[in-house]
Amino acid sequence: MFKKFQPSSDISGQTQVKSSVSRSIRSAILSQWKIEPETLESVWPKKEGLVHVKCREHISIYTVSGIPLFFQHFDGPFYPTLRFLHKYPYILPAVKVDRGAIRFLLAGAHMMCPGLTSAGGYLPPADQALAAETPVALLAEGKEHAVGVGITKMGSEEMRKINKGVGVETVTYLGDDLWEHEKL
């Protein structure tokens, strides 16, 4: 999503978010992520105005005092930015890709099922199975920090069964243009 992203040409406007809207965003995030209200409050204080950065192709990035915290595509789920995820890694369910896939992930590729189901990969066990279209943190074999944020394209059980094709679509990854811009 952010493989090519230039603030000068891709941002069409920045506006303060109305307090009623920001309240609904806050509640949406609290319901979508595993984050405590207090933790969110410490990162995004209620008093601090949220700024909506409108970008091409219906991408909305939300920033607090210039630092992008999370973004959204059209009406879709909210994704944390990678820096935010590094600080609070537990807010999204995690999947892990094997070492061979890291190279491709860092080039912006979507994650294929075999990379997730192989020995180095990790998918949540069956009792915590992920549904399709769930935002996930992408971890990598042998690494501590997340390498990207993605959205599942099929359920985790389905991935195990089919084991072919795109399992997790990469939304943002280490070294993409959103990562490059610490401030907007």
Partner: peptide, 10 residues
């Protein structure tokens, strides 16, 4: 009184 969890230092 719940307190915010501290961010991980990366």
């Amino acid at each position: 009184v719940p307190e915010p969890r501290q961010p991980k230092t990366v």
